[in-house]
């Protein structure tokens, strides 16, 4: 039932573009920050959460979840808290900066929840 990834890309590109801009002034870089493109940063999450943030149970689907919720969760992981039965996430998020976590939260909150939503945006 997986639709071709191709139709999803326009939606991602669209959202990505918004990330680049929204990230603007707020993302002044601290010394620990890196300049990895958001798309590449987010690609590191796909190994477990799926190419477009739709994980297979019981790994969470993160596409389209509210930004504030994702930010709160990822930040908690980064601070070493284990929420919602997570096992690996605190160990992984400890390797990311606060700015990167904001970027990831924006990225995944912007993705469509279902492939059907994405397909609708296909030109």
């Amino acid at each position: 039932m997986t639709p071709s990834p191709a139709p999803r890309m326009p939606a991602i590109g669209l959202l990505l573009s918004s990330l680049l801009i929204v990230g603007g002034p707020a993302s002044a870089q601290s010394p620990e920050d890196h300049s990895t493109p958001p798309a590449l940063l987010a690609a590191a999450c796909a190994n477990c959460h799926g190419s477009d943030g739709r994980g297979a149970w019981p790994i969470a689907s993160i596409a389209g979840r509210p930004y504030t919720e994702l930010l709160r969760q990822l930040t908690a992981y980064r601070n070493g808290e284990s929420l919602d039965d997570a096992t690996v996430m605190p160990r992984l998020m400890a390797g990311y900066s606060a700015t990167e976590i904001e970027t990831l939260a924006r990225w995944f909150s912007s993705l469509p929840v279902t492939p059907e939503t994405a397909a609708e945006t296909t030109p």
């Binding site: 326009p10 590109g13 669209l14 990505l16 573009s17 918004s18 990330l19 680049l20 801009i21 929204v22 990230g23 603007g24 993302s27 002044a28 870089q29 920050d33 300049s35 990895t36 493109p37 958001p38 798309a39 940063l41 700015t99 970027t103 030109p123």
Partner: peptide, 23 residues
Amino acid sequence: DRRQALRWLGGAGAASLLAACGG
């Protein structure tokens, strides 16, 4: 933002995706 999106929808290529956040 919209211009970026339209460029991408038009198959504008990889450059917008390669740009760093804050870069």
